[in-house]
Design a protein around this nucleic acid. Structure first.
Lengths: 215, 215, 215, 215
DNA sequence: GATGAATGAGAGTTCATTCAT
DNA sequence: AATGAATGAACTCTCATTCAT
């Protein structure tokens, strides 16, 4: 399965905004600083310095400091996540994985790779989600609705085949997410920590297979 | 089993600090504001106003704004959590729950109640953990070491009895935490959301029992 | 007739605000700079420097730069002007000037002195009135209503005596104001220009007496 | 008498500057914005937006923001006012109005119409006159010198005829101006207010005729 | 111990102006 | 001639912190 190239999608969405090189540099510097120090502990002067531009340039395109955050978070939340998810789900269904085990392995591995490829954005999202309830509400609903509705059919397929416990899609999805997130959060929190994607995929799948088996 | 009264423990640790009523009011106001708006978006003037004291008083005991955060987070992280955990584990072991199912139910329910009783503190911890790597590192290590070492014996007990899969304590603990956290995080993020502790305890236990059964 | 001591009234209204010496210095510096350079061309840094305080002090009491303007203009517009007018009109009516000529002389002289004593405030009022329509509307209505309603009785008295043309109070008042303002505006506009109050009072009265005589 | 078409004169002076359409649009946008919000509260970006041009274009012809103000105020102050005044006085003298009453009516009506036709410019002039003493000094002297010297002959004519009090031309002129301005200022200050030119002309003339009559 | 006026460094933001295209 | 991205100085305002009372 061709792994979705999230950074490429992000870069593409930047290109669509018709930003100049300097303005892209502002976004890149902001992404780095926000994810490292948090939004509040990053000054626009820091951003300008790291991006190698004047403070005025920072405001030319993004109007306010919050506008920079929006420019980073929104395409990620509104376009990149769903896009990646849709693409990925298309692949899953087209491949028509016959075994639930293969399905689980594919999905879990994909999500681990997505997380590893987008640590800075996830860090920012994670951080802002607490301070700004709207963001978290929107994102969580979006992801939940999208994923669960698309996954529903897959779940039903495996439930009918007798390979998956007959719980609600929400509940099944929650345990899948929880298990993945349980491995990812320490990586988000402790700098330098990494993940052996293949290993954790194997472990997670083994646990979930048992937890989600019928009977 | 008598449920651990965390707020009482917290209040007790406050009493030990020999704070005046005004200084306690400062801590309470800070707890409320930090958990609602985050540390950075709370000014010392906000705190003074809510606590009904002068700005000078805020600084009399706590020296700096970070000192207030420390005074809230440290007793929670260093004393309250371990204390509660130890107390709770003592109860568990002394009661010598014969069934793994009963053990799981007891542990899970206790953790859900702990979370529900300490939402403001968890929100602050959650928030600061990302900005301040040291905090998260310290806390995660502390919790992991402490809990897993104490739980090890219990795990071994049930593994020997043939009721628990023979994975490492860390791995077993991770899935237990993940499953609980998977229910708690939405409550942390979306204001107004609550949890039916009995219901989620039943669901989580059902899932974990299967996922952690041998074979 | 004891001339109303406007500066004393202003100082008194300052005292009532319970301002510290530094905060009074801020108001005084602002009054000077606003009247000299205009509100927009005066920076809060300018004010702080002239007042010999930090910029923070400027904001401690007045919250915003516009707040300083308000603190200068409002007591002047809402308290000082009406107060002075009422006091002055009381004196007029109690003295019961028998001749319209004496009445005119008294009123005109008082207004000239009021203007000369409050040039800085008038300059600011004049300046802001154009940019902020609300101010001018409020002030003009206030002055007009107050003065014309109080003057009405006096006008009627002299009209009955056959010393004053039987026009509407508004119209009579307008010509009185215009004539005074016609002498004052050049003083407001051209720095260094002063007024010989006795001389202009004599001239204005001579003109108005003829213009307002009944045929 | 043909009423002087000030806007036409202004447009003509614009044409003489050999401005492109875009540059004229800049001037027109500036005139509107300066008179509405004041010079300081109008940004060059505002002007560019309203004029539908780039910010660079704003600076091509006018070098600085103050240059735009100059381009609006100077032709008005140096050319348009005197030009209109001269033209108007020519008409007055050539028509050789026999009665002082007719003369007054003609002059007053003309000035009211001039004011009504040029409210935006007057607003700007009024506003800037306070902040920039030079402007007001220059304009006031210019108008005074020009008008009073030209009017002198007319005044002398009516004084000799016994229709006008034998005061200095300056003093007579001041009362004429004051009376007109007394009606115009409220219109400048309170948006939406208008003037019935015929009515105020009649009122003003009636008052001035009496005030300026000999004896 | 408590107050709150005062501080000053630094934050976010605006804007007149320049200049390569 | 026209554009608009880029600049950087200056502005208004915030806030953690200090200290005389």
């Amino acid at each position: 399965m061709a792994n979705t190239d999230i950074p490429a999608l992000f870069a593409e969405s930047l290109t669509n905004l018709k930003l100049t090189d300097k303005q892209k540099a502002v976004l890149e510097a902001s992404l780095k600083l926000f994810s490292e120090k948090g939004f509040d502990n990053t000054s626009t002067s820091d951003i300008a310095k790291l991006a190698g531009v004047s403070e005025g340039t920072v405001y030319k395109q993004f109007k306010t400091k919050a506008g920079i955050l929006k420019a980073i978070v929104e395409p990620f939340a509104e376009n990149v996540i769903p896009l990646a998810a849709t693409e990925f789900l298309d692949e899953v269904s087209t491949e028509n994985l016959p075994d639930f085990k293969d399905f689980l392995t594919t999905v879990i591995k994909n999500r681990f790779q997505f997380a590893m490829n987008n640590l800075p954005q996830l860090r920012i999202l994670f951080h802002e989600a607490i301070t700004t309830p709207k963001i978290s509400e929107k994102i969580s609903k979006e992801i939940l609705t999208l994923l669960s509705s698309n996954l529903k059919q897959a779940y039903l397929f495996y439930q009918t085949k007798g390979e998956l416990v007959k719980w609600s899609p929400d509940r099944i999805f929650r345990y899948m997410i929880s298990t993945v997130v349980g491995y990812v959060i320490p990586v988000l929190l402790i700098p330098g920590l990494t993940l052996d994607v293949d290993q954790v995929t194997k472990e997670s799948t083994e646990f979930l297979l048992k937890g989600l088996s019928p009977k």
